[in-house]
């Protein structure tokens, strides 16, 4: 190898080569699991359809989970945090300018007086 792949990070190292090896290992595992699969599977037959207690299967486009419904639990758990954070982004220009000046004032106190 002309180039040394290893990235030295002072206290550790990283080599993309290990990642390649792990990918190969993962592919082999996938193949093994695949090989254990059902041999009698046929595409395009009734066999493919899921059985939902006899109910008709909804259309594919109808069950697509849209972005707004993802991470519902996460948003619900952190409701308090977001209730404090989101109103800061109020969209009012003078608020933003006030933030700019406030940071300047805080840094004045921190840097000039300390």
């Amino acid at each position: 190898m002309a180039f040394d792949l290893t990235l030295l990070t002072g206290s550790g190292f990283w080599n993309p080569f290990f990642w390649l090896i792990s990918i190969v290992v993962a592919l082999i595992l996938i193949y093994i699991i695949y090989a254990f699969g059902e041999k009698g599977y046929k595409r395009g037959t009734q066999q493919v359809k899921p059985f939902i207690s006899g109910n008709p299967e909804p259309s594919k486009a109808g069950v697509h989970v849209r972005a707004g419904n993802l991470y519902w639990g996460y948003m619900d758990a952190l409701k308090v945090y977001y209730a404090g954070l989101v109103p800061i982004h109020s969209g009012i220009l003078t608020d933003y300018l006030l933030w700019l000046f406030s940071v300047a004032a805080i840094l004045f106190v921190l840097v000039v007086l300390l």
């Binding site: 982004h89 608020d95 933003y96 700019l100 940071v103 300047a104 840094l107 840097v111 000039v112």
Partner: peptide, 26 residues
């Protein structure tokens, strides 16, 4: 102390331009 004031002004201006919180609103 004048240099400190200049430093603060520069840091605030450039931190704003690079979008660091809490100057990231734009």
């Amino acid at each position: 102390s004048l240099d400190k004031i200049a430093l603060v002004l520069m840091v605030v201006a450039l931190a704003m331009k690079c979008g660091a919180v809490p100057l990231h609103f734009w």
